[in-house]
Amino acid sequence: MKLRIDAELCEGHGRCWDLLPELVDADDHGHGFLIDIHASVPPELEQKAREAVRACPERAVTIE
């Protein structure tokens, strides 16, 4: 499982980095970005990753 954040859709609600600080950080604008864009989501964080997808108001966070 890999997490994706679409920077075009992101408006900086900040749910992803609030819920998943292990994988997502916030830039100076409060927009979420992946700490390691190549990394897979570790199994123990998969549930939290799904929550981050469900929480994003702009539907900018997806998993593949």
Binding site: H13, A52, P57
Partner: peptide, 15 residues
């Protein structure tokens, strides 16, 4: 429960 997609702070460019 954790977050549910919501618009308490609005959304889009004027979030």
């Amino acid at each position: 429960r954790g977050d549910m997609r919501n618009f308490a702070f609005g959304g889009g460019p004027h979030r």
